[in-house]
Write a protein that binds this DNA or RNA. Structure first.
Lengths: 221, 221, 221, 221
DNA sequence: CATGAATGAGTTTTCATTCAT
DNA sequence: CATGAATGAAAACTCATTCAT
């Protein structure tokens, strides 16, 4: 499992090996439970070298988040062709997303779970990436509405909430798919696409569900 | 904030005070960063007493997860009346869910975030509760389909995926609502309900989105 | 040498034991070369206890400096009776000083050497005590001049320099006496007293040595 | 500040550059807090080269002490002309001493402070030089007594103590002058000369201060 | 010669946990 | 019951020092 003990590698290569090891350990044990000793051992180097290249546990973790967040965003972007219609673009994006999170479960754990549970600094780092994805999805929803030639003025705030819900659902499904034996990226994407596109279609066509009067909200503290 | 230092309380009460303190600290600092010293101090008792009643940090954390998970499930259950139609039941459930998570942010942090980021044991504990909620939603979807008198045979696996997506979206929205100034439980519920019920409605009526052939899945590692 | 391993001592006592050990180690090895491990072992306690009571290596060192500086000043003060003439007071002060530094060589090393070689913070701590001693000596010189009924207006700046030189000479002699076999406190005091009081006497009576014109200062960079 | 990066300098030159850097860093940070990395960087050479030329941190420090101690002794010697009377020789020596320590504060810190606070080995190195100076002063005192044609038999032991006190006072004044804004070498020398020569004069002429009977020594531990 | 790559050994510090009273 | 006293075990981080190129 650990990298083969090879001597005298150029710095850039060693750094990637260290990040590989760190992502695996951080993803498995969590940020705090992960020990630099373990990471160094898995990377096949001594601890001082890790500190020489990555400075501190915090910096190492930040570097992991950045690398994996970028990799995920890139994967989604590369999966989408801008010359296709909106629904197809959403589908391709979801597929790429679920494929990447399935292929790199530790990375997904780091970016989605660990980064968000250990302080604002790390959370902000991951949030930056998430925003890119949310923006991408928001754009697709708006375009989708326009392509359907209906309700071109779906209110912005509403769209933001929908995008948030859609991305949230995707994130949760990714965790679920990783944890559940036998669920493929395609299946996860299909489930969500079905769920989402129909609902979005309805909305863009003016059909919506109306809540009962606020009175019955009372009683929940 | 910490319980007033009173002598000779019945064990059950003292235990609840300790759990209150523990939930607050665990929710704020995270499992590992929380120190037993701090918890004991906030609870207004001596450290050995915490150990006498709760055995260990792990057991204490587990007890927190169990108590808060149950409280959340109970809150959702109490919010729903079985004599109402499915869509209304879903609405009421969501409302109760968002209201509870907003009212107890530390508890929600413990159950949703901390429990899932510090090892399988704790994750399993939280997963048990989650399953109850997923089952509840699954039931609602099935009933909803039946009430609509259409497609009574929506495949089980499909329904499971939909419930999972819906619950996942709700969880994400809860985090988002807690973190975003000015988003009420009602608004969060409305956003999700709109999104979900329309999509579900379509599905139960046989309209669905068809993915392109699997060939283009290739290339995503 | 190390304190006998006794269990369950009151905090105040343990703290003194720790300070005793710390002074010995710091005095012997120097601040940086001293390890908390060694100090704890010599004190007969575990390292965590040292940290529980003294917080950090810096705080521990500061506590040592304060305790030993106070002890030295107190020793000198207690050795002097205000109802005696100035020369006798100076003699008694010197005697007390050399006796104390000889009896507590590690403490003297800490206060005089270590405190001054490891950063401004520690140096300031020791300087505070030194100032008390310098002030005491300055006072004695002034009083001595007055008692001699001559030159009551010895300039302040001059007196300050003299006190500084006298204290400096005493400090150096203390180190020398500690390092040289067979030099007693009495002898050290006598040497310095002889040297100083005669010189001071001359000065207070207007005899002084006149340097040659400044021209020949040139050439020394 | 650091030497300009030039290639292929003769070994002797490179060594001096390294020592320059080392003295600066050791003087500023102290022996233990100084890092070989920092020294190598300031010297403008790679770390392995420092080891190639100077062997180890200990050896490097020793080399610094030796070089700077010699430089100081040389400075004092060069400042003194043997054809002048004793008092003038003492004055010139002091002037050279204070001028040198003021011009090379890091060097003075290394020789006087650092060398004495980090173990016997280094202390002995510095002590060797100090002895030369003490011998020089001892000689001056003896000659001074003879020139005054009185008490040619001032006991040796006494003279040694006096020389020690004088040198100690000079050392302390040097530190004080370096730390105090606006004190020139001339002023420091004048203060000490005045203080010392008068006192010595008295002594060489048989006037001395007599301590009270030893009885009252009792009680100082 | 010169240097980038690499590490063994040690440092300070923290924490969950347990006795003795 | 309640608590002050105490610790074993481990974690993050640093540094003098050495090869291979």
């Amino acid at each position: 499992m650990g990298a083969v003990k090879t001597k005298r590698m150029p710095r850039a290569v060693r750094e990637q090996q260290m990040l590989d090891a760190a992502v695996e350990i951080f993803g498995q044990r969590g940020y705090m439970a992960a020990s630099m000793d373990e990471i160094a051992e898995l990377a096949g180097v001594s601890k001082p070298l890790v500190y020489l290249y990555l400075n501190s546990k915090e910096d190492l973790f930040t570097a992991c988040i950045r690398r994996e967040a970028s990799a995920l965003v890139d994967a989604v972007r590369s999966g989408v062709r801008t010359d296709l219609p909106a629904d197809r673009r959403l589908w391709d994006g979801l597929l790429a997303f679920f494929a990447h999170t399935a292929a790199h479960p530790h990375a997904w754990s780091v970016v989605h779970l660990q980064a968000r549970t250990h302080g604002e600094t790390f959370a902000a780092e991951a949030a930056a990436m998430r925003e890119e994805i949310v923006a991408f999805v928001t754009h697709l929803i708006a375009v989708g509405a326009r392509e359907a030639h209906r309700d071109p003025d779906l209110p912005e705030r509403e769209v933001a909430g929908l995008a948030e819900a859609l991305v949230g659902a995707a994130e949760s499904l990714a965790v679920w798919a990783n944890a559940t034996e036998g669920v493929t990226a395609r299946q996860a994407a299909a489930t969500l696409m079905n769920f989402a596109w129909a609902g979005l279609g309805d909305l863009t066509q003016g059909r919506s569900w109306s809540p009962p009067p606020a009175a019955d909200d009372v009683g929940h503290a």
